[in-house]
Simulated scan of single mutants.
Amino acid sequence: MQTGIDRSSPLPFYHQLKQLLLGDIEQRGLGPGDRLPGDHELCATYDVSRTVVRQALAELETEGVIERIKGRGTFVAHPKTAEGLVQSLTGLYEDVAARGGHLRSEVRSLEVTPADAQVADDLDVPVGHPVITIERLRFVDEEPWVLTITHVPEELAPGLVDEDLSHQSLYALLESKYGVRLVHGRRSVEATVAGASLARSLGVSRGAPVLVLRSTSEGQDGRPVESFVAFHRGDRSRFEVELSRHTGGAPRPLMIVTG
């Protein structure tokens, strides 16, 4: 096992240092939150410049291996939950379970409310139409991960307000008990920062990065049956998208939404 920089190797010093640090993390059995040596210590230990150290650490941070906290130091990063929610019509419950994790929901509200203009537009119902509103703070392996606000037209799931949604999939319940099958959907992701209230809920600092996932799902007849907005911790979540290239036909332009 390499223990230092090989100065005769054609590999760049920063790449060698990156591999050395990965090996050190594995050999020492370091886990999320464990502290790593600082820049100056790494320079002295491996006899390299600070530029080399910074480049190696920058790549490890980009890859999600470490996290650098200003004023505190460098730490082994917490793994992010990879979610296919953008490309497939699954819920967080299914995504986490498929990866062997545990999801628990703290149901903050579950009630019938009149649809406001935005919800009415999403669900294609009149303003004021009764919808079931579900607000859940969701924990992955007992760590707050995402705050989700979901709306379902009341007539599609009578009795849903009496269900316990702490440990079960809403999508599975809608399909198995109420016969509401979700077959198509539209989802978008945007970046924002956490305000004071959201920061408290997610256990992050005010101004921390947040990924906002917005979704509308349709049933077999093409009518909307569910919509939600979910505020994901930016330091714990990433979205995976599989791409394929199709030849022929008119290209679909990149959509950029502002405002």
Rank of each mutant, 00 (worst) to 15 (best):
M1R: 05
R7T: 15
S8Y: 11
P10S: 07
L11I: 11
L11N: 03
P12K: 13
F13K: 13
L21Y: 03
E26A: 13
G31A: 12
R35H: 10
L36Y: 05
G38P: 07
G38S: 07
L42N: 03
T45H: 09
V52I: 14
R54Y: 12
R54E: 08
A56C: 09
A58D: 12
L60Q: 12
E61F: 11
E63A: 15
I69S: 05
G73I: 10
K80L: 09
A82R: 13
E83K: 09
E83Q: 13
G84C: 06
S88Y: 15
L92V: 07
H102T: 14
E111Y: 06
T113M: 14
V119W: 02
D122L: 08
V125F: 10
V127Y: 04
G128D: 15
V131S: 06
I132Q: 00
I132F: 01
T133C: 14
I134W: 01
L137W: 04
V140K: 07
V140R: 09
D141N: 15
P144C: 02
W145S: 05
W145T: 08
H151P: 03
H151E: 08
V152G: 02
V152H: 03
V152C: 07
E154A: 15
E155I: 07
L156T: 08
A157D: 01
G159F: 01
V161N: 01
L165T: 03
L165Y: 01
Q168A: 04
Y171C: 00
S176G: 00
V180P: 00
V183L: 06
H184S: 09
H184Y: 09
H184E: 12
H184Q: 10
R186V: 09
V189A: 08
T192N: 03
T192E: 10
L198S: 02
L198Y: 03
A199Y: 06
V204K: 10
S205L: 11
L213T: 03
R214I: 00
T216G: 03
T216V: 15
E218W: 03
P224L: 06
S227Q: 07
F228P: 07
D235K: 03
D235T: 10
S237E: 06
S237R: 07
L243A: 15
L243W: 12
L243R: 15
R245W: 15
G248H: 05
G248T: 05
G249L: 11
A250L: 15
M255D: 08
